[in-house]
């Protein structure tokens, strides 16, 4: 009888866990793809929204997880995306691709000057500046009733992608059918794109800046430019997410830019794990579904969320990905 060498066993099991870690996102995407068939319309619509938040969070995590900048005002870009969709669909421009491209353009135009100012600061100053700009937008959306619809917001009519003919479909059928898969495709493409960005030399530069900007500078990294590009990319992802989040709700209202919404985005990141690439996607899905379930059980759901946030920060600083990512089991 032979006895297994403990080192060999450990290496083999580590390898299988690593394989599992690579396989898990694939399984996750298959589950998302199967959702309209396996879950009812209510949960499919929830997943639709979660995918929108996931896109926005992928961008936000480029700032927090990779560059070390905590934006407390990222919800402003969600609002920019949703309001762009609202204005364009109100003007009978119903092509989703055009709406998405316009939201990207608006996000860039807004993010460039804000970014130019904010990225000169770090830590709490960056956070407070982004929060200030977000609240400025919120106040504008809230007060300028004639332009923005005030607290009632502006309706977002269901746009139609060029790829699918949805003329014969009702709203629910479209949202749980072709539109769902369109957004799913967007999520995959934007996830892949973000993975390429973070794995590129640009991503390496951002990680260097996160660790120490002085060190990065004397190795030739243009800290300000990198931060600005990171900020703009995050804004673009935020706006694209905002378009998607706004579609199932059918409304763009000022609460999208409110600080609570930015707080929710940070919560989702912490929940999923901002130290992991897939953390934002997991965090958005768990948050949306957990919130839905909790709201149906208790009116004190915010209290429960507060406790959950405290537990995550204290016991699971790497979020849910830190618990389920097998590589982290070994490191702890």
């Amino acid at each position: 009888m032979t006895t297994a060498n403990p080192t060999t066993v450990r290496v083999d099991s580590t390898r299988s866990f690593v394989k599992l870690a690579y396989l898990a996102p694939v399984i996750g995407f298959i589950v998302i793809a199967a959702f309209p068939y396996a879950a009812g319309p209510h949960y499919t619509i929830l997943m639709f929204s979660a995918m929108g938040f996931a896109i926005a969070l992928l961008g936000l995590n480029l700032l927090l997880g990779y560059t070390g900048l905590l934006s407390l005002g990222h919800a402003m870009f969600l609002a920019i995306g949703a309001y762009t969709a609202a204005y364009l669909t109100s003007a009978k421009i119903m092509t989703l691709e055009l709406i998405l491209l316009t939201s990207v353009a608006v996000a860039i135009v807004v993010a460039l000057p804000i970014g130019l100012l904010c990225i000169r600061y770090v830590k709490i100053y960056f956070s407070m500046l982004t929060l200030a700009f977000s609240m400025l937008l919120y106040s504008f959306l809230f007060k300028f009733y004639l332009i923005t619809g005030g607290d009632e917001g502006i309706r977002i009519k269901l746009p139609s992608p060029l790829l699918f003919d949805m003329s014969n479909l009702g709203t629910l059928a479209a949202l749980t059918g072709p539109m769902y898969y369109y957004v799913f495709g967007m999520l995959i493409v934007l996830t892949f794109l973000m993975w390429r960005i973070t794995a590129s030399t640009f991503g390496l530069g951002l990680r260097a800046i996160r660790e120490n900007e002085q060190k990065a500078q004397y190795l030739g990294v243009n800290v300000q430019r990198y931060r600005l590009i990171g900020f703009v990319i995050a804004a673009v992802y935020g706006a694209l997410g905002g378009v998607i989040v706004g579609i199932p709700v059918g409304l763009a209202d000022p609460s999208l830019a409110y600080w609570v919404q930015s707080g929710n985005l940070i919560f989702m990141l912490l929940l999923g794990g901002y130290t992991s690439f897939f953390g934002p996607i997991l965090g958005s899905i768990v948050f949306i579904f957990f919130q839905d379930q909790l709201m149906s059980y208790t009116e004190y759901w915010r209290l429960t969320f507060g406790v959950l946030l405290a537990v995550i920060v204290i016991f699971f600083p790497n979020g849910l990905m830190g618990i389920i990512d097998p590589r982290r089991w070994w490191s702890t």
């Binding site: 030399t201 990065a216 190795l219 030739g220 990294v221």
Partner: peptide, 8 residues
């Protein structure tokens, strides 16, 4: 080591 190879 790779970092400075593309900054300059």
């Amino acid at each position: 080591i790779a970092l400075p190879t593309w900054t300059r």
